[in-house]
Design a protein around this nucleic acid. Structure first.
Ligand code: FES
Ligand code: FES
Lengths: 149, 149
DNA sequence: ATTAAATAGGACTAGAATAGTCCTGAATTA
DNA sequence: TAATTCAGGACTATTCTAGTCCTATTTAAT
């Protein structure tokens, strides 16, 4: 289905909340309360985002999490790879070796091109775009029927 | 990891073989032998491709599978959705209702835009492109280091 | 007709990945 | 010192994927 994991989806929800809120520092328990996501899960996600340098954490009383950069500087690609690892459709997109599909697959180069295109698409959208009030013009929505041709 | 399922990968291997071969009709068992993929698995994939109108099947002795269209008219997007269903990163990319993430996610419209971009990327590459001898210019390969920023 | 070749459809199992929880330790503040 | 809050990792349960298999149907050849 080529879809994002649930955790990545949660991450965008959490980050959107943090980006929108005037207050800078948010504790995990607070984010859990606001978003409705269970605390342990929120915690796990926040840790991943810290490791990816999207958030900065402060321990101890009055501690919490804060955005490491401005929303305009946090791309969707970054968020996805923070939670799911490298963005790569096929094995050979990551490393040329180690793939070697059952005899005869030699299409690595072309997949890389596709992969690069997708990566660019995800790089071009930032957290700031996600929280921008949506202008839902009908033309922008993907017509589901067109998915099957 | 935002990656294709193994079955989809197999499908591209199978279709590449079929597109390259001069002979039109191929039985499942023959494809299994050539590609090295187990027969039951090959069978399963071929059935999905028939349902998606990518292949046409003929039953009985001397039967088999044949491409339903020219390789230039079979897009990667079609192959992927044949095996994995609609290409959609988030739930709300498919249907606006039914999503309603834990309180406060209202980013559907922007995701749709991203989704459309990716869909277009996958639409723009066909089976004919995949079997074209790869010109592996180094600039085209995705630098893995750039995946983490 | 009969037999052999081949796909259709779906049920089923095993394995892997994901989602979610929990515990223990370390840092910071009051 | 006590309370708060994150770090890191282990662990479980659930869901999804991959892979297999069985029975029915269709077609061709004899
Ligand atoms: S998927 Fe890697 S060579 Fe084909
Ligand atoms: S993922 Fe659907 S509304 Fe946010």
């Amino acid at each position: 289905m080529l879809r994002l994991s649930k955790l990545t989806d949660y991450a965008t929800v959490i980050l959107s909340f943090m980006a929108r809120d005037k207050i800078q520092v948010h504790a995990a328990i607070e984010i859990a309360a606001v978003t409705g996501i269970a605390l342990p899960t929120v915690s796990k996600i926040l840790k991943s985002l810290v490791n990816a340098n999207v958030l900065i954490s402060t321990r101890g009383a009055k501690g919490g999490y804060i955005l490491a950069r401005k929303p305009q500087q946090i791309t969707v690609a970054t968020i996805i790879s923070a939670l799911e690892g490298p963005i790569a459709l096929t094995e050979c997109s990551i490393s040329r070796q180690g793939c070697e599909q059952a005899s005869g697959c030699d299409i690595g180069g072309n997949w890389s091109l596709i992969n690069k295109t997708i990566h660019n698409a995800l790089e071009s959208v930032t957290l700031a775009d996600l929280i921008r009030p949506v202008v839902v013009s009908e033309e922008v929505l993907v017509p589901v029927s067109s998915i099957y041709r």
